[in-house]
Design a protein around this nucleic acid. Structure first.
Lengths: 243, 243
DNA sequence: ATGTATACAACTATAATACAAGTGTGGTTA
DNA sequence: TAACCACACTTGTATTATAGTTGTATACAT
């Protein structure tokens, strides 16, 4: 299977940036240096860097260099309140009802993400004032889950029960039509639109810890995302920290 | 009865694609390579591949290669960029068709957000590989829009045309059922799920510059949010309840 | 009708190269 | 001391060349 060169290079550079090999605010090696390191032309290196620029990971200044963009991009996203907080603020009573708590063989896609076949699956229904508003399925590896009991997940949020420190997550948001079982549980007509969200939560060492799927009735929920734009961020002048 | 060669080859390739031997979004071996592998001519390989293309399993781009289709376009959030670049990276050919370009009185909600009654409204249809992909309506104040022509917005993304520096945006994502007019334009059945987004883009001095509404067919799009650090919750961040 | 062989056009990614424009540094000059 | 300038180095941009890819057509064999 052929791969496009600069995609692979972008992957490698993304790894270095996110893993801290290239620290925040510091200059990256120049395009020429990198082109020698990867044994490709400067054009190809640029292509890879431009991908990372589009992702907001790095920035460039003509005549100066490429440097790792700071954290400000990530700040506004993290500041958004979670749904439970908002519900409590508006005086609602959030509750969760555990529907299933089983150790089983994971669906293939989940298995490949988690890297394990045997998993613990917990399916729960979140309600607010006795109105269902979210159907959640969480998978984690059977190893991790074997310390948990059904009573545990009924009492506390999942994240508090795991002894693994969590570091980050990737969240995918899409729309879909409600299928029969979930429609019944959520008390909505079959085929009515729902928000479908898949979240992959990773540990500090980068391994995938949790996979969770959420289904929300569309008419009751929406996502809000704050998007920061290219701020005038100028790296301190005269600062060249290439080791 | 003679067995037709390329039917068998198509079966084999279909198997590889659906079983994940050829991962989604990645390139297949070139026609020449495959013709050697199957010991047939390039023409025969093409016939097999064209069968799979008709089935929507793979796509081709001249001078680039064949790649596995089916993966919905993922829009990374957390950066303010056009999705068209993203689509080009995944090997698609994005185009936009301007449906309407009118100066008019804004709907009340848009007028209150923009702070103006007289606005320029541009409605366009984004396509990828001649498949409708997004229905977008953009409003900006008539003052700002009067420098623009229909040809301008046909050629370049809206952001590049405005002389006002942009600072950030707030985006609301929800699901909905497709209504009649948009369903027809997007070539989907009425009532099928769509992603509905409202984006409010602001300038550096905080004033609202653009209001835009986007409608995406659900099966073709999803949004991705990268969260650097896990929120203290399994629930997706940014989700809010609709009043 | 089906498959092979061949040729060529159009397109893509990459390489190699050149030059413009911006930045920091250090030396020179007034 | 302060202003200036030359220089090395950077990114930004454009051009040309090339190998490899799909798109398409034609001739021919089975």
């Amino acid at each position: 299977m052929r791969t496009i060169r600069y995609h692979g290079i972008a992957d490698e550079l993304r790894l270095r940036v996110s893993s801290g090999v290239y620290a925040a605010g510091r200059l990256l090696p120049s395009e020429s240096v990198m082109s020698v390191e990867f044994s490709v032309s400067r054009v190809t290196i640029r292509k890879a860097l431009e991908i990372l620029r589009d992702e907001g990971l790095v920035k460039a200044r003509q005549g100066f260099g490429w440097f790792v963009a700071g954290k400000p991009v990530q700040q506004p996203l993290g500041r958004l309140a979670t749904i439970e907080d908002q519900m409590r603020d508006s005086g609602m009573q959030p509750e969760r009802r555990i529907l299933e708590f089983v150790f089983e063989k994971a669906p293939r896609d989940v298995a490949t993400i988690l890297g394990t076949q045997q998993v613990l699956r917990v399916t729960r229904l979140n309600t607010a004032d006795n109105e269902p508003f979210a159907l959640v399925t969480v998978w984690c590896s059977a190893d991790l889950g074997q310390h948990l009991s059904r009573a545990d997940v009924e009492r506390s949020p999942f994240y508090e029960l795991l002894e693994v420190p969590l570091s980050g997550a990737s969240q995918t948001i899409g729309a879909d039509a409600a299928r029969a079982p979930e429609a019944e549980l959520l008390n909505i007509p079959i085929g009515s639109p729902v928000l479908r969200c898949e979240r992959i939560t990773s540990g500090t060492s980068g391994q995938v810890v949790l996979v969770s799927r959420h289904v929300f009735p569309a008419h009751r929920t929406e996502f809000v995302v704050e998007l920061p734009f290219a701020e005038p961020s100028i790296a301190p002048s005269g600062l060249r920290l290439v080791d």
